[in-house]
Design a protein around this nucleic acid. Structure first.
Lengths: 247, 247
DNA sequence: CGAATCATTGATCACAGTCAACTCTAGTGG
DNA sequence: CCACTAGAGTTGACTGTGATCAATGATTCG
C-alpha cells in the first residue's frame, strides 16, 4: 500500500551481522549478500506491509502472475484445487519465505495462498525484480538459489515413506525453519489444524492424532492441541530419516 | 497444447528448430527466445556431447556443483540415497530437459543422475551461465522459468492420492513430455524397469503390474513389458485427474 | 542351452483409512 | 455466570487396500 523507507526485511544499519535483520540471517532471504545501495534499490520496488486477516488469500490459482510475495508475519498455506474441487495443501510458509515462485513458469499463480492467522506480506513486482537482478549479480544468484531451495524442499517431502516418518519429518523441518528465523525450535504453536496437516501429508486426521500420541509416549514430543514441544530433537530427527542439507 | 504458443514462445518467428539445435523446440529449452548472436554466446560455453553408457552417472549426490547438464539423448533417473542406503527415485529426465537445478541452492548435487540406456548430455558451467544471463534478459527469464517449471512438476507428483491415479498421471505426463519433444505421445518405450517406476511412485512393483493389467482391461492402454501404447488418451487423462498447465 | 534378470500372478496379512461416538475448548448470549 | 452451541480434536471398532511373500513365466545374454 505505501512505500515507506525500510522495506522488505532490511533496515540498512542492522545488517551488519547477518545481512538481513528482518528475517534474521539464513539463505532464504532475498536481500542476503547485498550492499547498502543495492538494498535501497531493492527496497524501491517493494510494496511493504499488506495486512491479511485469517483465511484471506494473497493470490488465487489461475490469476495472472505479476508479483512475488515475501512473508513478513503469520503463517500461510499453499493449496491447489483439483477438477473435483478437492483441496490439496502443497505446503506451509513462514515469515521470511517467498511465495509465488511456481507461478513464474506460466505467468499464472498455480495455488491459493491463504493466511492461517492474521498476517502481513510485502509484494515484489517480478518484472522490476528481474530488471534489477540483471545489474546485481548476487541478487540474481540469490533468487536462483531460492527457487532451487524450493525444489529441494518438495523433494524432501516426497522422500518419506511411512506415516510416522512423514509426520516426524514435517515437525522436524518446521522446527528447523522456525529456528533459522530466530524463533524457538522446540516450542512451536502450530498455526494449522490437524485437518490441514493430514491433508498435506496425505493422511487421515485421526492418524495424526494417534501418531502424536505415540510420539508423546515415546518421549519425542509433548503436544496439547496446537501447542507442540519437542522434547527429544535427536530422536525426532532420527525418526524423520532423510533430511537433506544435513551432515 | 501447442496451438497456443502464447506464453513462453515470446517473439516466435520460425525459431523452434533454428534456435535450439541441441534439444529441439519446446518451452523447456534454455536458448528459447534468443537471437542468433546470443545463441552463439551460449553455445560458446556449452560443452556438448558427453556420451554415457547405461548405468553411468552424470553426477553424484554430494559432489560440488559447478555445471548444469542438458540431456541430448537417452533417459535418465534422478535418485537420492538416504541414511539407510535406500534409493528413492525423484524423477526421470528426457532429452531436452535440464538436470542439476536443485543443486544451485547449496552448490552441491543433491541426487545421483544415472543414464538408463546409452545417452548423451551437454554441460553448462553455471558461473558462466549466470554471467551471460546478466546481459541477456530473455535468457535469465528462461532459466528462471525452467526452475519454476521444475517446482510445478514436483508439485504435480504430490497431488495424486490413489495408486491408480498416481500411475495414470505418471504415464500421462510422460506421454505429454514425449509429445512436446516431437516423439509419439501414444507409443512409448518405457526406459525404466517396473521396479524403478514402483520406487518413484511409492508402490510395490507387483501393484504396478496389476494396475497396468486393469488399465489394459479398461481399454486405456496396451502394454507388453516395456512397450506401452496409449489407446484412450482422454480416459487416461481423466483418470490421472489433476494435471496442471492444461486447459 | 542354462543363468540371470525382469515381469506377472496368486494368497495372505497388516497398516492406515473410514465410520461413529465422545471430549474438550472457545465463543455467544440470556 | 452458567447453559448452550459449534468446531476441533481424540478415541475405539471395523474394514479394505495395497504391501509382502512365494512361485511361475518371459526375455535376454554369455
Amino acid at each position: 500500500m505505501k512505500s515507506d523507507a525500510s522495506i522488505v526485511h532490511i533496515t540498512a544499519d542492522s545488517r551488519s551481522k547477518a545481512n538481513c535483520s528482518q528475517c534474521s540471517l539464513n539463505s532464504l532471504c532475498l536481500p542476503l549478500g547485498l550492499n547498502q545501495s543495492e538494498i535501497e534499490k531493492l527496497d524501491g520496488l517493494v510494496n511493504s506491509d499488506i495486512k491479511l486477516k485469517p483465511n484471506e488469500t494473497v493470490f488465487e490459482q489461475g490469476q495472472k502472475f505479476t508479483k512475488l510475495f515475501a512473508i513478513r508475519s503469520g503463517v500461510f498455506k499453499s493449496a491447489q484445487i483439483d477438477s473435483e474441487g478437492n483441496e490439496k495443501i502443497l505446503g506451509f510458509y513462514l515469515p521470511g519465505e517467498l511465495v509465488g515462485l511456481d507461478a513464474i513458469h506460466e505467468e499464472t499463480y498455480k495455488t491459493n495462498v491463504t493466511a492461517l492467522d492474521t498476517a502481513s506480506v510485502c509484494s515484489i513486482p517480478f518484472d522490476n525484480l528481474t530488471n534489477l537482478t540483471a545489474s546485481i549479480p548476487s541478487l540474481q544468484l540469490q533468487l536462483l538459489r531460492m527457487l532451487s531451495k524450493e525444489i529441494n524442499d518438495v523433494h524432501t517431502q516426497i522422500l518419506n515413506f511411512g506415516i510416522e516418518q512423514r509426520l516426524a519429518a514435517f515437525i522436524y523441518t518446521l522446527s528447523l525453519r522456525y529456528q533459522e528465523r530466530g524463533y524457538s525450535g522446540t516450542h512451536i504453536n502450530l498455526a494449522m489444524p490437524r485437518l490441514d496437516i493430514a491433508n498435506h501429508l496425505n493422511m487421515a486426521p485421526e492418524t495424526i492424532s494417534r501418531l502424536f500420541k505415540r510420539m508423546q509416549a515415546d518421549g519425542l514430543i509433548n503436544i496439547n492441541r496446537r501447542e507442540l514441544i519437542i522434547t527429544d530433537m535427536q530422536k525426532l530427527k532420527d525418526l524423520a530419516g532423510c533430511i537433506p542439507g544435513q551432515e
